[in-house]
Design a protein around this nucleic acid. Structure first.
Lengths: 166, 166
DNA sequence: TTGTACTTTCAGGATCTTTTGAAACTTTCG
DNA sequence: CGAAAGTTTCAAAAGATCCTGAAAGTACAA
């Protein structure tokens, strides 16, 4: 396979994967492009390679920066901004976990807390309380687990799970 | 808080959470509804409670069954089909992991394997191979880790991660 | 086999998300 | 300051996804 075809395929697949991970297609493709490019790229480079508009490139680059997956890289003497991707996969996944935990798990836990207040009168509300309690327990556990995961470093990840697999 | 309000809020939130988890809003709401209901519900019950059409209810119920999150429950003597939710949270999450691993991670790994074949001629293709190798390593590790997770039982999950947190 | 009770399908409409492109804004430098 | 180079914003268009409802399909009981 030649590099051109490979690149194409990678941009495609990473984009598809992204859309099922809360990162939209274009955002994921920009990330993919920066991942495999040896040096920093400008917004214009990204626009041209992916054939997307300036607005689109700009918005998604900013979002990637928010997620900690891409950094600005200002070349001295150059006015233009350049961008590089976070290339360590463990850091990439970690950042995604952090974002999604904040946006999804934590609000859910807060809501579950409120919902525990429902008074247990009839059968339906007893079942309700029971289910909510279960979910709350599970979510808090997942929450702590993710905290630990995120604090740990890449070696820990590799090490522990390699052992685990045996 | 009374049960009616609580239920409303739960259906709402579980629906929202679902949409960021590859389970669409309505599917998640149906699951939520079944979760908190003390007994099996029919398609008509679901339609009425969630104010959705028959087609929608049917399609999403089937999808939930595919995902292993809901089961048919045929009452003897009754012609109508009833449905119950999988209520064990660990099993719910496990099933979601299984589905998503199959639909997302595994195809990605296959593609990465193909992409390793790109010949390393210039700088760009060297970087490309390097990045692909990294991602492949990481993905395979994640894949094995998820396999182990999925094979393990709920107690293992609780036990190990409780220890891990300390 | 026919009628009844129920389930499944799917084309078209409704809704939500993403992208474009042009205008407004900011920064830098002569 | 004023022009050039670059970045950001956002309303409207395009595109993707989801839902409806009616028609077709199935299964059962008499």
């Amino acid at each position: 396979m030649d590099i051109k075809e490979g690149k194409e395929k990678f941009l495609q697949s990473w984009g598809a994967l992204g859309s099922s991970w809360g990162v939209n297609r274009t955002m994921a493709q920009i990330h993919a492009l920066l991942l495999i490019s040896p040096g920093p790229l400008s917004a214009d480079d990204v626009m041209e390679e992916l054939k997307i508009s300036r607005g689109n490139a700009n918005m998604n680059l900013r979002a990637l920066i928010d997620w900690g997956l891409v950094f600005k890289n200002l070349k001295p003497g150059e006015r233009k901004e350049f961008f590089v991707a976070e290339k360590d996969m463990w850091t990439v996944v970690k950042n995604i976990i952090i974002q999604r935990k904040k946006k999804e798990l934590e609000p859910m836990i807060r809501i579950l807390e409120e919902l525990s207040e429902v008074e247990a009168t009839n059968e339906a509300s007893k079942e309700f309380r029971h289910v909510i309690k279960d979910i709350k327990l599970f979510s808090s556990k997942a929450d702590s687990m993710l905290d630990t995961l995120v604090k740990s470093d890449s070696n820990w990840f590799v090490g522990t799970f390699l052992k685990m697999i045996k």
